[in-house]
Structures are given as C-alpha cells and as structure tokens.
C-alpha cells in the first residue's frame, strides 16, 4: 500500500463515466455526453447518447429498447461505483439517436 491521496478532477470523472457509458451502450465514446451533478451529497449522473439497434423489422429482436437501456443503466451505475468509488444517487439516460446497423447474414 502506498500512502497518499488520489484526487480525481471533475473532468477526469466525466471522462471515466463517459467511457463506462460508451462501453455499456456499445457506442463510441465521442458520441456520449455526460453531465455530473451533486444530489444532496451523492453523485447524480445524466447521460445522453445514441443507441445501437437492429432495424425495425429484424427477426429475433429480443428485448425492447427501454429494457435494454435499463440494463445498461444498471450496469453503468454499478461500474461507476466500482471504478470511481463514488456513491451514485441516480443515473438518467436519454437516448438521442438510433444507430441502425445492418444485419449481417450468416452464410
């Protein structure tokens, strides 16, 4: 153990949260916008990002968008706590765009 203190600047924290969000939403980090705020002593996180999704009529769609994003949201929340050590009060995600990817047909 090394004595000392790690100070994380707000900017660094933002970038960390951006990376976490980008990972869970599977989009480039450049597409993610993050806003951090204090919420009565806890950390409130707001993320605005696009989401990668299959075309509308794709077969085997699986869960709806809200369910998928909720899953990402909970993963993001956990990872922020683990990686930054901050206690998060809420994570709000706004899906700004849909990046529709073409289904690759298996041959």
């Amino acid at each position: 153990m090394v004595a000392g203190r790690v100070a994380i600047t707000e900017r660094a924290l933002e970038r960390t949260v951006m990376a976490i969000a980008a990972g869970h939403l599977r989009v480039p980090i450049t597409a993610v916008r993050v806003q951090l705020a204090d919420d009565a002593g806890l950390l409130a996180v707001a993320v605005t990002a696009p989401v990668r999704t299959a075309p509308l009529r794709a077969p085997g769609r699986g869960d709806g968008m809200v369910t998928v994003v909720q899953g990402a949201r909970s993963g993001i929340r956990d990872d922020i706590t683990i990686i930054t050590g901050r206690t998060v009060s809420r994570v709000s995600i706004t899906v700004s765009r849909a990046e529709v990817f073409e289904e690759k047909r298996a041959r």
Binding site: V45, P55, L56, T94, R97, A98
Partner: peptide, 27 residues
C-alpha cells in the same frame, strides 16, 4: 424532445423523438 420516459427515484430512461424518425427512416 422526449417521446417516451420511464423514470423513478434512481434515475430514468428517456427516448428522443429523433430515435423514432431514425428507425422509421431506415425502415
């Protein structure tokens, strides 16, 4: 901007209208 929002104490998920037009446009 928001066409759909599911919220609670621990945060929310909101979907912009642009998502709908992106999906429909592609379709």
């Amino acid at each position: 901007q928001t066409v759909l929002r599911v919220g609670g104490d621990d945060g929310s998920v909101a979907i912009d209208a642009r998502v709908a037009s992106d999906l429909i446009s592609e379709d």
